[in-house]
Design a protein around this nucleic acid. Structure first.
Lengths: 220, 220
DNA sequence: CAAAATTTTAATAATTTCTTAACTATTTTC
DNA sequence: GAAAATAGTTAAGAAATTATTAAAATTTTG
């Protein structure tokens, strides 16, 4: 049973999509604005997001930047190549223009659920001796349990997800902003310091590396 | 460096795609029929397939069914919803209709390569044994990792980008001024000296050549 | 609602990088 | 070949970035 979040302010289009998905036995969740979408994203884990771009308050583009681990299909009236390219490069997985064909939408949804199956967020994240459990915000280090706070968990998760790449501080702040509203660069440094200290209590190995002037990454 | 197999019988379209991909530093492989594609698929492992549907002998649809573990972008003149749905459900990851927009194709290629293996959204710069990774400001010299500072990275990047041309000191200062505000000629000399020393620690080869009275270039 | 846990703020310390400047080396010009 | 101009090296301290710490503010929990 796959959970799909529909983010669309036009109530008619929203209902059409919702019905379509329910017929296919997907579990649907409904957001009618960008802000509502962000709230729902905090609460639950979804397998896919169907996202309109022109939303009240927070735009779809901003949501794309904040989501990292859930496939996104943009469904927009904006038909320009520029809009498509921007969204796809920002992190969207597919872009469908309105008016859309129901069968094509369903097929493209299946593609996303099929290909993204392997790297699902509900499963535990692993890297070397680190094992991150999504449910209760705990980190296992060589089977030693380390309790993390919500923010610490969010940071470590993004670092592991993006491994071996470096994440810039701004990007990282973007990605964790779903969980933590007003965390700035200074605050981020404190969280990372605390995270390192917690890990340091159990091992000599340094897992988080600072890249001077850029951001952070998981040490190889 | 990603390997992309282009399967397209129309020689003009084929060439357009090939050029486009080569400009983006992808390694391209060319098949002009379905049977040729199958032969190439046996020989080598590709990161992505760009597939036309209407091919002589074996159709694109049949190829989709035979490929399992390589992402496929269908590029077809067939615009019907039915064709799209069939291909996507059969295993294709994306479907673009002709005539296509170059930038959109490139963006959708990046999406496929990104989801497959989360790395390499930005391209690495290469020259001879030098390999410059944009993300973490590191230089690889024969696979030996050399950490560069932001300014050193900026300088080397410009030198490699403009290779084999000579860059005047003023031009170089201009080009790196985004990253370094108040770097003058003297300071530049120091940076280049430090850069040379870092490289000298690992190899006898001199990579940066001074052109007396003018500026610098990468040695051929 | 009070205690506990978490997050942010802010001040200080530590580290890295950059520039300055003095000195040395090389090339060009006369 | 000497003087002048340009280039290279080095070290010190200035500037910028990152790390740590503790206390205040906020949120969560019982």
């Amino acid at each position: 049973m796959k959970k799909i979040l529909i983010v669309e302010d036009d109530i008619n289009i929203h209902n059409v999509i919702e019905e379509l998905l329910k017929k296919e036995n997907y579990i649907t969740y409904n957001a009618y604005s960008g802000t509502e979408a962000l709230l729902l994203l905090e609460k639950e884990k979804y397998d896919l997001i169907i996202l309109d771009l022109m939303l009240p308050a927070i735009s779809g583009e901003e949501i794309i930047k904040k989501v990292n681990d859930i496939p996104i299909i943009v469904l927009s009236a904006k038909i320009s190549s520029e809009d498509k390219v921007n969204c796809l490069l920002a992190g969207a997985n597919d872009y469908i223009t309105k008016p859309f064909d129901s069968k094509e939408l369903l097929a493209r949804i299946k593609v996303q659920l099929r290909t993204k199956n392997k790297s699902n967020t509900s499963t535990t994240l692993k890297y070397k001796d680190l094992e991150l459990l999504p449910d209760n915000h705990t980190l296992f280090l060589n089977n030693i349990k380390i309790g993390l706070t919500k923010t610490e968990y969010a940071i470590l998760k993004q670092l592991i997800l993006n491994q071996p790449q470096v994440i810039t501080k701004n990007k990282l702040l973007d990605l964790i902003s779903i969980d933590t509203e007003d965390c700035d660069e200074n605050s981020l440094r404190v969280h990372i310091s605390n995270l390192r200290k917690k890990i340091r209590d159990y091992t000599e190995v340094e897992y988080i590396e600072s890249i001077w002037g850029i951001g952070f990454k998981i040490k190889e």
